[in-house]
Computed example of a mutant assay.
Amino acid sequence: MPLNSPQQITDLTIHAGIRKASLPLGAILVLGFLAGAFIALGFLLDIHVSTLIPPAWASLGNLLGAAVFPLGLILTILAGGELLTGNMMSLPMAMYAGRVSALAVARNWLLVTIANLLGALFVAYFFGHFLGLTEGAFMAKSLAIAQAKVNADFAHGFVSGIGCNWLVCLAVWLSYASKDVAGKVLGMWFPVMAFVAIGFQHVVANMFIVPAMIFADALTWAQFVPNFISVFLGNAVGGAVFVGLAYYLSYSKALEAETQSVATTTSTTTV
């Protein structure tokens, strides 16, 4: 399985951030909608798999649900999508490298947040509520998950958000490590499964499950907003600092030195 080195992944991530910052509005909105829907579909699959497991095996059900949740990120990375949590790593890394502005990062995050929300709301309403896939036999499980998220206070939501996006961005980072599809899927699978099994909070996933319960008249928008803010900020720190900044500081200088060394060698050889 051919692999990219951490230095190469750093370069790939920076260039990904540059590309994302320059995407036209239409592409951001369409790809953001798709990514929000993909994450929601992964969550919907999680709920169905875990609910169908007998209550006596609830722990196994939770593990199996977490094991299928990565579908959302796999679709986003391989099929194409703009996901807020991944962009919380790639765009800051491009900003640290001086290749994009803070304003460009803020613009992308704002537009992708709106687009992800629309995609997640689409799945929550039409699949979750209209088709009843988060209600009826699945209502108890869906409501328990949503209540656990909105009942967390600001500090707990924030810290849980850090843990979540630390793992999610590591999943994206590992997808850049591999040069083939199987390696990318495997690299993404375990970090995402881990954050779901642990119970960390993902802002885009919450855009699906909490509104699904709002559409079922079990929760309110007033409960969603504080949770959204705390998890958004935690996810931003997890992606931009614990992965983006950490690896930029660790590998960007080595990458620059390696590039300069190659350039010097090429120049000497030419002379």
Rank of each mutant, 00 (worst) to 15 (best):
A137K: 11
L174Y: 13
L110T: 09
G26D: 03
M193F: 12
G136Q: 02
L63N: 15
N206D: 08
A212E: 09
Y247P: 12
S175A: 12
A177R: 10
H202F: 02
Q7P: 02
W166A: 02
I47G: 11
T51Y: 06
A177P: 09
L60K: 04
A146L: 00
P191H: 09
A218C: 12
V225Y: 04
T264L: 08
I53E: 01
W221V: 05
F43L: 07
I74A: 12
T259W: 11
N62D: 13
L34A: 03
A257W: 10
A67I: 09
I14M: 10
E258P: 12
N235Y: 01
S101I: 09
T51W: 08
P54R: 08
G187W: 03
L31Y: 04
G32A: 02
M139A: 12
A115R: 05
L233H: 00
V181C: 04
A240G: 14
F130K: 14
A94Y: 07
V271R: 14
E82K: 06
S178V: 07
I77T: 05
G199R: 01
A257Q: 08
V204D: 00
I9E: 11
G119N: 03
L110Q: 01
A148I: 11
G61L: 01
V237S: 12
A218M: 10
V105W: 03
V68E: 03
T265V: 15
V172L: 10
V185A: 06
N108T: 15
F130W: 15
V271A: 15
V181Y: 12
L131D: 10
N62F: 15
S90G: 08
V181P: 05
L60W: 13
P24R: 05
F232N: 02
N116W: 04
A35D: 00
V159Q: 05
L143Q: 10
V185E: 09
G61V: 06
A148T: 13
I229P: 00
N165I: 05
K184I: 13
L41N: 05
S250R: 13
E258T: 15
G187H: 11
G244T: 04
L91E: 14
S175I: 05
Q260H: 15
A115I: 01
P211D: 11
V225K: 08
E258R: 15
M89C: 09
Q201S: 02
I9H: 02
V196Q: 01
T266A: 15
C169D: 07
H156Y: 11
S250I: 12
